[in-house]
Computed example of a mutant assay.
Amino acid sequence: MTWREVQTQFRHPLFVGMILMLELCIVLIGPYDHLLNFDALQLAIFYAVAFTSFTAALYGAFYICHQCGWRAYSLFTVTFGCVAATVCGLSVALVLGAPMPGFRDMALVTGFNLVFCYLGEVIQSTFIIPRVLADLRGRPQKAVLAEFITAEAGALPHQPVRFGPGTIPPPIFAGRPAEMLPLKAASVTLFGQVFRTSSISLIAAEEHYVAVILQDGTRHLLRGRIADAVASLPPDLGQRVHRSYWVATAAVAGFRPDKPGAQLVLTTGQTLPVARPRLAAIRDWAEAAAERSKAGQGTARPVKPEGRKAKTRKAPQRVPHVSS
Rank of each mutant, 00 (worst) to 15 (best):
T55A: 15
T126S: 03
C117E: 07
A56G: 10
L108D: 05
S53Q: 12
V92N: 02
G89H: 07
T52P: 00
Y63P: 00
T79V: 04
C65H: 04
A57Q: 04
P99G: 03
F116E: 04
V115E: 05
A84N: 11
A48K: 06
Y73G: 09
L108T: 06
G81L: 02
A93V: 10
N113T: 06
V109M: 13
H66Y: 11
G97Q: 04
Y73H: 11
L58D: 11
F127V: 02
G111E: 05
Y73V: 13
S91E: 10
A84L: 07
L114Y: 08
Y63H: 12
Q124R: 04
G69L: 03
A98C: 04
P101H: 08
R71W: 12
V49H: 04
G120K: 07
V95I: 15
A61G: 14
F112L: 10
V95F: 13
C117Y: 13
A93M: 09
M100D: 03
V92S: 02
S74I: 00
F76T: 00
F103W: 10
N113A: 13
T79H: 02
F51Q: 14
V49M: 06
V109F: 12
F103S: 02
R71T: 13
Y59F: 15
G89I: 10
A61W: 02
A48R: 10
Q124F: 13
P99L: 03
G81T: 07
L119N: 02
F116A: 08
T55Y: 10
C65Y: 08
A107Q: 04
L90T: 15
F112E: 05
G111S: 04
L108F: 11
W70H: 03
T77A: 04
G81F: 02
P101N: 06
A56Y: 08
S53F: 10
A93G: 12
V92G: 00
V109N: 06
